[in-house]
Design a protein around this nucleic acid. Structure first.
Lengths: 100, 100
DNA sequence: CCTTAGTGCAACCGAACGGTTGCTGGACAC
DNA sequence: GTGTCCAGCAACCGTTCGGTTGCACTAAGG
């Protein structure tokens, strides 16, 4: 598990999550295409895609003069891993308390 | 499942996650106590605790003139719920594709 | 060749964020 | 009562963030 910071940061913005969910449920799309379905400009979407890319949540495929983005789900396991790690630490502390 | 925005926002900051993890693994603490263990001022910690509180990730208990904060894990299920929702949408799309 | 659609880059703007400092106010301890 | 410790409130500061506009570049398509 790498540094989860870019991942959490990428997921913290609603628009970015919307873009990501759109890609997972409706399949790959280009920046302009996504911008048409959202209330923001293409540039804004493009920036969000950069953030998602840095978090590994997206994959770029060049199709002619287009850049087709598709969702990548693997990094999401880092989130659930973090959650269960926290859960484990919690359980461990309870265990320690019960031991007294 | 309520709006996950405050939750994701709360989790997006490293210091805030550190505070939260500290509370889960070492148990309840006050703001000044936490500030002593972190490289930030008490006010900074206090602000983070407000954010965590708004996300439901923390519980305040008044002990004399102290405010003792303890971690609350329940909201974290919203995160895993969101992740599995995304996973389901992904699977559903693959299913649709296979149907063609 | 010229037009058109799609992208990237850069500058800019306002708002939010993380953090600090300074002050006030309430409980405890002496 | 006085001093001390803990917390909350408010102002301020620099940076980041989400977003926009404008421009240049490139790759089709007629």
């Amino acid at each position: 598990m790498s540094d989860p910071q870019p991942l959490f940061a990428a997921l913290s913005d609603p628009t970015r999550r919307a873009v990501f969910e759109r890609l997972t449920s409706q399949g790959p799309a280009s920046a302009t295409q996504l911008a048409a379905e959202l209330p923001v400009s293409r540039q804004a979407v493009s920036k969000h895609l950069v953030a998602l890319d840095e978090a590994g949540l997206v994959e770029r495929t060049l199709v002619g003069r287009e850049v087709r983005y598709s969702a990548v789900l693997e990094p999401l396991t880092d989130v659930t891993t973090w959650v269960s790690k926290v859960g484990d630490e919690w359980d461990a502390r309870l265990q320690r308390l019960r031991h007294l």
